[in-house]
Amino acid sequence: MTDRLKALSEAGVSIWLDDLSRDRLNTGNLAELIKDSHVVGVTTNPTIFATALSQGTAYDEQIAELAAVDTTPADAITKITTDDVRNACDVLTATAAATGGVDGRVSIEVDPGLAHDTEATVAQAKELWALVDRPNAFVKIPATEAGLPAITAAIAEGINVNVTLIFALERYRAVIDAYLTGLEQAAAAGRDLAQIHSVASFFVSRVDTEVDKRLDKIGSDLATALRGKAAIANARLAYALFQDVFGSERFATLEAKGARKQRPLWASTGTKDPAYPDTLYVTELVVADTVNTMPEKTMQAFADHGEVRGDTVTGTAGDAQAVLDGLAELGVEYDDVVAVLEREGVEKFAASWTELVDTVTAALAAATAASNSGSNA
């Protein structure tokens, strides 16, 4: 079952699990996935933690302890999530050591409500980095306009960053520039560049969701023929951009000082349209120096029937650009698509954060009520 995942890993794709819960940690499930399914990293987000908290009893004891000292929901979230991420980092310590720190990474996200506030994002990135206190952690910062200088500031401080919510190629170029600028500042400050790591999370399936919706409204044969092609084309062009910039003289100067490439990470790789193969965004994005973070369902599907046909990305930029050009000819405006996706992405992340706050607030209230009931009995 895992031979396909092994082949994917050997093709240069780092397999990360897009999920984390205390149950996964307590039962040894995460350790099993590392051992048996070639998992070498973990990504999290507020929705993942809200789901984990709402299921089972793994968090009950800690929730009761936090409620007993009148912890605010915001502080409780920080405590709970940093504990889980720290413990997951420890599970992945051997992986980090074996890969020279390239993998073995666990990501924790800044409050999405800060997506348009540079200074607050930097402040929280520093706080989360200090609280998790593990060299193999990543702090997730969104690739909004306000996020770009926050990325530079965090990298300059030696904080490892997972840049999230990237849709547009132009924004991706700005993300890479923010990373390189941060490295240049870190070098000027005398930091060891070899210890600074970053990935750039390029969201995949949502591009098809938005573009296909527009193509369906057009309804022509050509529009139908282009369904399900935009997301992969966008990601393949992103990889061409990665190769270009990290093959530049600017990066070569930094690399001579120990700097690492900021690998592309394919995120949102579970298919949203049931008409598409459930492994589509894995099979079509196999190339070295990348990460694919998958929900366990997608990982299991790939283990069962996924295909590794070698490198499916290098040398495809021309065909990928032809897809985007074809969309433009039909009136599907790329700049508008990615602007809508970024705006909706920030809104969805903020809504997920609200869901997490509500979940923790209810759990604290229930714990307090149970404690009061017990003391009155």
Rank of each mutant, 00 (worst) to 15 (best):
G315P: 02
D278K: 08
A64V: 09
A252F: 06
F242I: 08
L169R: 05
T164V: 00
R22Y: 04
K126I: 04
R206S: 10
G258T: 10
I151P: 03
D3S: 12
K126L: 09
D18G: 06
D18R: 06
A96Q: 05
M1R: 12
G345I: 11
I166T: 15
Q262M: 11
T44K: 05
D84R: 15
D221T: 13
P73D: 04
T71C: 10
F202N: 01
L285E: 02
L114T: 08
D244S: 15
K140D: 05
L180V: 12
S54G: 06
V313D: 03
A377Q: 15
K297A: 08
Q300N: 07
I159F: 13
D75H: 06
F138T: 08
F349Q: 11
H38D: 13
A189E: 08
D90Y: 15
D133I: 09
V211M: 15
L165C: 01
A369G: 10
P264R: 13
G147D: 07
I77T: 02
E333N: 13
E127G: 02
G113C: 01
R206P: 06
T2A: 15
G28L: 01
F242A: 12
V110F: 00
L237V: 09
G147N: 08
D216T: 15
A256K: 07
A186E: 04
A240F: 12
T72G: 01
I141Q: 02
E109A: 00
S268G: 05
Q195G: 11
V338E: 13
N45S: 14
I232C: 00
E109C: 00
P277A: 05
R171T: 11
A88N: 02
S107W: 09
L114C: 14
A146Q: 13
L356G: 01
L8V: 07
A98M: 12
W16Q: 06
Y172H: 09
R105V: 05
G374R: 14
P135G: 09
G147L: 06
T152V: 04
T290M: 03
D212E: 08
E296C: 14
P295Y: 03
T95S: 01
T359D: 10
A303K: 00
A186V: 13
